[in-house]
Design a binder for these strands. Sequence first.
DNA 1: CGGCAAATGTTACAGTATAACGTAACCAGC
DNA 2: GCTGGTTACGTTATACTGTAACATTTGCCG
Lengths: 161, 161
Amino acid sequence: MTVLSPTGPCGGRHERCVEAALARAQEVCRRRGLRLTPIRRRVLQLVWEDHRPVGAYDLLDRLRAEGWGSAPPLVYRALSFLAAQGLVHRLSSVNAFVGCPRGGERHGAQFLICGDCGGVEEIVDRRLDDGIAAAAAARGFVVAAPMVEIAGSCARCAAAA
Amino acid sequence: MTVLSPTGPCGGRHERCVEAALARAQEVCRRRGLRLTPIRRRVLQLVWEDHRPVGAYDLLDRLRAEGWGSAPPLVYRALSFLAAQGLVHRLSSVNAFVGCPRGGERHGAQFLICGDCGGVEEIVDRRLDDGIAAAAAARGFVVAAPMVEIAGSCARCAAAA
DNA sequence: CGGCAAATGTTACAGTATAACGTAACCAGC
DNA sequence: GCTGGTTACGTTATACTGTAACATTTGCCG
């Protein structure tokens, strides 16, 4: 059963996030000649149950309950695949994964991580991207993977406090 | 024995980085009425042996070799203390720690992490700070701890390739 | 010197991730 | 359809990272 997210930026119509994510995944795999196997599809679905990061072992527990295998590589392989295709992101500051609303597109990503409700919003801020590119370029540094994870309180939680 | 860093931004005079770091730590603790105990001091020194992030268990191995205790909390407690005083930073994208060249000052920090040589340069870029503040503010998000870790290749390694 | 707070020592364990190797499914080309 | 290569999955084992909890010691201050 899909849990509606009270924290996400989707305004209570979360089924749409999930459907869209699955459709994007399907399309990305078709275009790149890759296989969206049942397990990969299911992991993507589970990651998208909420706009909160999910731990790999949480996913593993749920898969186990559904009759899938129970060893860590099961879920890590699926997550690695999805991350490589830009369908999910790994948030290293919390050791967890979130669905990416931009499917397989090329994009730098930044995350607002609410420490109160646990919600995560992915933002794409051009100014921030440019700032990173400029700061790196000024030092001759060639950027491969910029990672911006901003911890704090989301608007809703900040207002409540 | 202190290893001179070929990768750091200190131009081969790395002893100065270490000395300065220890002096800053001394001063910070004095000002705040805290104790720079032998173990904390030694951990800070070890972290500063190079401009590369060091894993907690690497530190632990070295401490063990020097006759200190051998249980993880030993090193995690020292690192927590140093991090709380702004003397070291934890790089969550690599699960490791680096010395902070800005001592106990208040500052947002960003890191350029070279995937080839493993070197890390801490930068303080006002434009980047502002970009983060603006992006968050635009969404009503209250920033507590921004984290920017940019993976790529440093100037030296990029030139070599 | 007595008592409190802070720091350390130690055991045990929780959580995260990957190496390695065998088996099964897919798919191209014959 | 067979066959052989590639990709994905199953499983075991283990490595790496981090913390809870409690006993003990140390330093400080009245």
